[in-house]
Simulated assay, not measured.
Amino acid sequence: MNSNSEIKTLLEKFILNQCTAEETEQVVAYYRNNNLTDEFPTVEEVKNLLGEMPKMDEQKANLIFDSILSTAKDQETIIKLEPQKSNYRKYISIAASVLVLLGVGFAYKQGFFSKTADVPFDFKSSDIVLQMEDGSVQIISENGKVQVHDKNGNIVGNQSGDKLVYQNQTNSDKLAYNTLKIPFGKKFRLQLSDGTMVHINSGSTLKYPIKFIAGENRQVYLDGEAFFDVAKDKKHPFIVNADNLNVRVLGTHFNVSNYPEDAVTDVVLVEGSVGMYRSNEEFDASKNTILKPGYKGSFNKENASIFTRQVITEIYTSWIDGGLTFRNMTFKNIITKLERRYNVTIINKNEKLANEKFNASFKEESIENVMSYFNDVHGINYTIKNDQILIK
């Protein structure tokens, strides 16, 4: 860590509980090497503390920064700082020292780490929710029109129907994030400030900057599934973070599926080139997995391995037009995906079915037709009443 910007970035990741093991060691080493405290915890102790802290969003991290600063004013005498050091160093020194030594308990008492502080979202609801950078929410109606504002009241985006478009004229030199949450049974389109088009599948969330900043990577965070048509920009690589996997591109068309019930995160490349690598690593084209068009890369969530194979890409992108595909998938996972797609509740009383694997593809079919197929081909008996399906 040789610059203030590097220190600040790493400290922000630390408070957001996004540091890798190596980055955690760098934080500890920095504060020990600068003698900011003689009682700084060991790396192992810090990791244990982080393990107890739920991840936060940027807004809560800023709140903690502010609270630490206001609380630390009466404690500044316990921090050993040379008078000639800058206020910025003093700021991060107090923030980090108080956060690790005192701030975890303080933050819990103040409720900043409370999981209930996150905006609750019921994926079985009918509402598409846009969470703003300050934590406030805006309901998106697929039949309506909405203007999206930043914290200063400036218009940064416009929504019409099932599409939200962000502007690129916003005057900002700091990343500020919005998050789209798509409920079961719905899909949505999002155009980012650089012109990148994203199709977001049901039961998914995407966190993205209101505007990308010059000199910084274009990074977004995905839980669920989305198809990306990335605007070309050689100076600013586009990175999709899917938990422990990063997908890096310059301009291309690809699909990322990262649902929690799946053992792997799948990346299917339609056009261009993408690199797949673990999120705690730096991208290296000579070492990382590079996909070619027509290939699928699968990241094993358990052992972090990546394997590739050639596929028919249309099978994996058909959901954009209402299609539905299962490949060598257990029935219990199929149930989860059907519940998400059709916003229904499925109760399976046939336990033998749960771990059986199936292959099936559908175009834009109703849940009645899908269940009828499973009955006709695989002899699965069921009843449908309202939005509940009972498998006997």
Results as ranks from 00 to 15, higher is better:
residue 2 N to I: 13
residue 3 S to W: 14
residue 7 I to C: 12
residue 11 L to D: 07
residue 12 E to Q: 12
residue 23 E to M: 05
residue 31 Y to M: 04
residue 36 L to A: 01
residue 36 L to E: 01
residue 39 E to L: 09
residue 46 V to Y: 11
residue 47 K to A: 01
residue 47 K to T: 08
residue 52 E to G: 08
residue 53 M to E: 05
residue 55 K to R: 10
residue 62 N to D: 09
residue 69 L to I: 15
residue 71 T to H: 04
residue 71 T to I: 03
residue 77 T to P: 00
residue 85 K to I: 05
residue 85 K to N: 02
residue 86 S to H: 14
residue 95 A to R: 05
residue 96 A to I: 14
residue 101 L to V: 02
residue 105 G to R: 08
residue 106 F to G: 01
residue 110 Q to R: 09
residue 114 S to D: 15
residue 116 T to F: 03
residue 118 D to F: 15
residue 122 D to L: 07
residue 125 S to C: 08
residue 131 Q to R: 07
residue 133 E to V: 05
residue 135 G to S: 12
residue 137 V to Y: 02
residue 142 E to S: 10
residue 144 G to N: 09
residue 144 G to M: 09
residue 147 Q to E: 13
residue 151 K to Q: 13
residue 153 G to S: 04
residue 164 L to Q: 05
residue 165 V to A: 12
residue 170 T to A: 07
residue 175 L to K: 12
residue 175 L to E: 13
residue 179 T to L: 04
residue 181 K to P: 00
residue 182 I to P: 01
residue 186 K to R: 03
residue 202 S to G: 01
residue 206 L to M: 06
residue 212 F to S: 00
residue 213 I to D: 02
residue 214 A to Q: 13
residue 215 G to P: 03
residue 223 D to F: 01
residue 235 K to P: 00
residue 235 K to M: 04
residue 239 I to T: 08
residue 240 V to G: 09
residue 241 N to C: 01
residue 249 V to L: 01
residue 261 E to W: 11
residue 264 V to Q: 03
residue 266 D to T: 03
residue 269 L to R: 02
residue 272 G to T: 08
residue 275 G to R: 04
residue 276 M to T: 10
residue 283 F to Y: 08
residue 285 A to L: 02
residue 288 N to T: 14
residue 294 G to L: 10
residue 294 G to H: 10
residue 301 K to E: 00
residue 303 N to R: 11
residue 310 Q to P: 03
residue 315 I to H: 10
residue 335 I to R: 09
residue 345 T to C: 00
residue 348 N to L: 10
residue 353 L to Q: 13
residue 357 K to G: 00
residue 364 E to W: 12
residue 371 M to D: 06
residue 373 Y to S: 08
residue 380 I to H: 05
